[in-house]
């Protein structure tokens, strides 16, 4: 089937999308945007998190057809050209990236948290990121990164 959607501000029209295909598969394999990750493909790990019309979703749990006419923003769409988004820069500076496979999903989820709640408490950060598994870091430096990003966004 044919699918029309906007991803990171760019309009895509793609044919041959299979009816059973996930949005994640379409992004990764048809649109050349593999930044969203395929760790569990069953909505448990959050590594495929993208904005779908400004709401963070697990793109593995969205049928590609459901995104018809929608606007999607992936990890590849967070930076402004060369300039990283504050959340991305904070993940780097806090050492929150190890293997990095969870990072794209966490960045989108944390980005959304700070947009909605500019001064999250630790408990709010943990609750908000509870759907994003990380196996490398033990989450401490991810907590540091989100606190840092919130501080930086507050003063900018």
């Amino acid at each position: 089937m044919r699918l029309n959607l906007t991803v990171n501000g760019k309009l895509y029209e793609t044919d041959e999308v299979w009816e059973g295909e996930s949005l994640l598969h379409t992004l990764r394999e048809r649109l050349g945007l593999p930044g969203s990750k395929n760790a569990c493909e069953q909505g448990e790990c959050g590594s495929c998190t993208v904005y779908l019309d400004d709401v963070p979703v697990c793109s593995c749990m969205v049928a590609a057809g459901q995104a018809e006419g929608c606007s999607v923003r992936t990890v590849e769409g967070l930076a402004d050209g060369e300039r990283l988004d504050t959340v991305q820069q904070s993940f780097l500076d806090a050492g929150a990236v190890q293997c990095g496979f969870c990072t794209p999903g966490l960045l989108v989820q944390a980005h959304d948290l700070i947009e909605r709640n500019p001064e999250p408490t630790d408990a709010e950060i943990r609750e908000s990121l509870a759907g994003n598994l990380c196996r490398c870091t033990g989450y401490e430096k991810i907590m540091d990164a989100v606190r840092l990003a919130a501080q930086r966004k507050a003063v900018s």
Binding site: L33, G35, V75, L78, Q88, L92, V97, G100
Partner: peptide, 19 residues
């Protein structure tokens, strides 16, 4: 110092074997 692969990783541009 920060990781040399960090920038690519936060941009979603780091090529994993499944990409």
């Amino acid at each position: 110092p920060s990781r040399p692969d960090g920038n690519l990783k936060v941009r979603g541009d780091y090529a994993y074997s499944s990409d």
